[in-house]
Amino acid sequence: MVTLRMRVNGTTRSLDIEPWVSLLDALREQLDLTGTKKGCDQGACGACTVLADGERINSCLALAVQYEDRDITTIEGITHPIQQAFIEHDGFQCGYCTSGQICSAIGMLAEHGAGMPSAVTEPGATGLSEAEIRERMSGNLCRCGAYNGIVDAIKEVAR
């Protein structure tokens, strides 16, 4: 058992944890922050996306113990215009992938703002086109098929 500190949604939390516990399970099962979802537990769906020091990561493939002293933001710690945009553009149906989509979108906007390219970025291009949003968000699956609404919500907030 390891004792570690982590800032979660702005509050320092202390965890007594086995080193093989994932950040996702630590959040859900120990801190009762169940807004972060488990969809595949293998980095293939993005439902577990959280922000670590502002960068989006898949918490299912992160060992909690590796994130000592890091700043973790989950959906419970987010107040951002994109949440209302998701509602207005119906960017979800069942709601299970939504926390991950929202965290991912916030991380993505920051990456784009910092000038980080994507696989579809043309040399010299800086805009956030629909194609850019779709490529950059492709790590977040939505089986209900709310992709159009998600892209619209992000477009609105990015404006």
Binding site: D32, T34, I75, T98
Partner: peptide
């Protein structure tokens, strides 16, 4: 009309089957 569970689902408050403590 916006769906009624929008606020719950966009803030992580909606509890699914594996999330009842």
């Amino acid at each position: 009309i916006d769906r009624v569970d929008g606020p719950e689902k966009t803030t992580g408050k909606a509890r699914f089957a594996a999330e009842f403590p």
